[in-house]
Design a protein around this nucleic acid. Structure first.
Lengths: 358, 358
DNA sequence: ATGAAAGCGCTAACAA
DNA sequence: TTGTTAGCGCTTTCAT
C-alpha cells in the first residue's frame, strides 16, 4: 500500500518509456499490440492504479462532476394510521421515503459514470464555505439543487467552473438550468380536477422557490380561465420545510373543525400531499369522497398510499442525466451561452383526485 | 471560467511569493497577519479556488474517500393493498423506500465532510473494471459494501489503498470490517418470539452473505437451546435479490394454500419482512394473530406499515461514521493491523411480533 | 516571516 | 512506433 507504483515503475518493469505506458492506457492504438500487452502485464503485476490527481493536473481537468444537494433531513413525519401518535423516533432522522432529490441524484450518478466521470457529492446543509470551495476545486463542473447555497457563493462558483442549476427559473442571473414544465403540468392537473366537477380548490404549500411559484401561478390562471374562485394565496404559503408537517396537520384539523374544507387540496408537492392525506385520514375524512388531494413530483411513495396519489410526474432520472450532459457540454465548450432546458411532465391519475381505480 | 487563477496569479497580485500564498491557506500561523490579509484579499478578488489535483499531487493524497455501493435498483415491488395488481410502473425503477445502504451512506457522507474529506461514490452494479480503478485512483481510501465487487478486484484494491468492508465476516482474508452483532440481535429477537409462546418458527430469506448466515445460525442456536424444532434451512434461502419479492409472494400463497403457515416468519431483513407481511395481508391472513413476522435492519419503512414491524435495528448512521474513522486511521497509519469492529444492535419491539401497541 | 526551488505522477508535444 | 521533455498547480523543505 505504502507508495503505489507509478508510471515509472511500470515503464521500467516493461522496459519502455513512461510515455508508452501512458499511451497504452490513454491511446492504445498508438502503441504496437505486443508492447501494449507487455505494459499491461507489467501494470497488472505491479497493481498499478493511475493517480487521478496527476492525470487531472496534467490534463487540466479532474474527470469528476460534483453535486451540491440539499440536506433534507427529517422527511415528513407520517403516521402509520394505526394511531394518532407520531410513528417516528425523534432520534432517528432519516427520510421516510425517497425524495425528489434522491431520484434526480440517481440520474446524475448513472449519467456520470456512463460518460466516464466520477461523481462527488456534498450536502449543502452540512457544508460551510470551506467545503463548498473544496468541492469546487476538485470537479470540472457542478450540479446544484437551487436553494442549496446562497446567491453570492453561487455567482462565485459559476465564474470559476461550469454550473447547472436544478429547477428554479429566475431570469436575473445568467446560469444554465434544467427544469420542467411546471405550468403545463399544473394546468393539466387543475383542468382535470375541474373536469371532476370540483369548484372550490385550495392550493397548499410553500411557493418561495421559483418553480413552485410557477405551479401556483398556473393553478390560478387555470381557475381564472374557468371562471372559478381564485385563492389569493396558498395555504401554508411561507412555512419552512422542517416545520411543514406539523403545520399541515394543525391546519387540516382546524379546517375540519371550522367545517371549512375545500373540495380539493392541490398541493405544491407530493411530500405536502402525503401529509395532508394522512391528516385527513386520521380525522376520518374521506379522500377523495369528501375532499380530493393532489400532489406534484411523482414520488414512488405516492403510489404506495391509499388512495394512490394523483400527481404530476417529473422525469427525475432524465433531469439528472440532462444536467450531466449540459455540464459536460459546457466543459467541452466553455464559451457557449447558458441554456435553460425544460423537460415535459406527465399527469398521473390515480384515486386521490376522484378517478376510479384502474 | 476559462483558466482559473492559480497561486501564481494570487502571489503576483499580492506581491508575495507562491509559498506565502500556500502558507496563508495551509499554515496561516506561519504568515504575518498583515500579509495574510493581503493574500486573502487578492485571492478573493481573483476568485481563487485551489486545485485539488495539484494539492493532492503535491501532498501525496487526494483528500477524498470513496464509496462503492451496491446497485439496488428496483426495490421491493410492494402492492398498496388496495388491489392485487403491482403498484409500481415497470418503467419506474426507483427504490420504494430508503434501504440499509442509504442510511449507512448518509452516515459516511456526514462523517466525511466533518473530517474534511470529500466523498466520491460509485454504484458497483453499473461499474466495469475501468470505473472501479478510476475511483480507486482518485481517493485515499475506499468504503466497500461487501458483495459489491468480486474478491479478486477487492484484493487488488486493498493492496493499493486502505479499504474497509461494510458487513460480512469472513476470516479468510485480511481486511478491515465494520459490522454488527448479528448473532446477538437474532438471539434476542428469537428469544422474544419464544417468550410469546411461539414454537414453530421459520426463517426466511437469502443467507448467502456472511452476516446473514450469522443471523440464521443464531436463530438456529437459539431454537436449539430452547428445545424447539430447528429448520434445517431458510425459506427462499438462495433466491437472488431481484427475484426475491415475487418469489416470496408465491411462496406465501403456497404455504397458505397448503395450510402450512408457521407461527412466525423470522425474516433475514426488513425488506423481506415487508414483502412477506404485504403478501399475508393480501391473502387476508392476520399478522400477528395468525402468524408473527419479524425483520432485521430497522429501516424507517418498518415503522410505517401496519402492524409496525418488530425488528433488530442496526446503527446504520454510526456504522457509516465508523467506517470513515477507520479509513482515516488507516490512511494516517498505514501499517496498523486490520480490524473488525462490531457495533451493537437493538431489539425493536412493535406489533408484528404480537406485542401490544405501545 | 518570506522566498527559491525541487518535486508529486502524469500527459502531450515534439523528436527521433 | 517509441522516447525525451516540459509543464500542470501546489506543498514543503531549506535558505535567507
Amino acid at each position: 500500500m505504502a507508495k503505489g507504483p507509478t508510471v515509472y515503475d511500470v515503464a521500467q518493469r516493461a522496459g519502455v518509456s513512461i510515455a508508452t505506458v501512458s499511451f497504452t492506457f490513454r491511446q492504445p492504438t498508438k502503441v504496437r499490440e505486443s508492447t501494449r500487452e507487455l505494459v499491461k502485464a507489467a501494470a497488472r503485476e505491479l497493481g498499478y492504479i493511475p493517480s487521478a490527481n496527476a492525470r487531472g493536473l496534467a490534463g487540466g481537468r479532474t474527470g469528476a462532476l460534483g453535486v451540491l444537494s440539499l440536506d433534507y433531513r427529517p422527511a415528513m413525519p407520517e403516521s402509520d394510521g394505526a394511531s394518532g401518535s407520531p410513528s417516528v423516533d425523534p432520534n432517528v432522522d432519516f427520510r421516510l421515503f425517497p425524495l425528489y432529490i434522491d431520484e434526480v441524484q440517481r440520474g446524475i450518478e448513472e449519467e456520470c459514470w456512463r460518460r466516464g466521470y466520477a461523481m462527488t457529492v456534498a450536502a449543502a446543509g452540512s457544508s460551510n464555505e470551506a467545503v463548498l470551495f473544496d468541492i469546487a476545486g476538485r470537479v470540472d463542473g457542478l450540479a446544484i439543487f437551487s436553494g442549496s447555497i446562497g446567491d453570492a457563493d453561487l455567482r462565485r462558483l459559476a465564474e470559476r467552473l461550469p454550473v447547472v442549476l436544478l429547477t428554479g427559473s429566475r431570469h436575473d442571473d445568467d446560469l444554465s438550468r434544467v427544469s420542467v414544465d411546471n405550468a403545463d403540468g399544473m394546468r393539466d392537473l387543475t383542468e382535470h380536477l375541474i373536469s371532476h366537477g370540483l369548484r372550490d380548490l385550495q392550493f397548499v404549500g410553500s411557493i418561495e422557490a421559483a418553480d413552485r411559484m410557477e405551479r401556483f401561478d398556473a393553478f390560478r390562471a387555470t381557475l381564472r380561465a374557468a371562471n372559478l374562485p381564485v385563492p389569493r394565496e396558498p395555504l401554508a404559503a411561507t412555512v419552512a420545510y422542517r416545520a411543514m408537517a406539523p403545520y399541515l396537520r394543525a391546519m387540516t384539523a382546524d379546517l375540519i373543525a371550522r367545517d371549512a374544507l375545500p373540495e380539493a387540496f392541490v398541493c405544491v408537492s407530493d411530500e405536502v400531499a402525503l401529509v395532508v392525506m394522512d391528516s385527513l385520514r386520521d380525522a376520518g375524512i374521506d379522500v377523495p369522497g369528501r375532499v380530493a388531494v393532489t400532489g406534484f413530483d411523482g414520488l414512488v411513495a405516492g403510489r404506495l398510499v391509499t388512495p394512490r396519489l394523483t400527481t404530476v410526474r417529473q422525469p427525475m432520472q432524465a433531469m439528472g442525466a440532462l444536467v450531466v450532459q449540459t455540464l459536460i457540454e459546457r466543459i467541452e465548450r466553455p464559451n457557449e451561452p447558458t441554456v435553460t432546458q425544460r423537460l415535459p411532465v406527465q399527469l398521473v391519475l390515480h384515486e386521490s383526485c376522484g378517478c376510479p381505480p384502474n
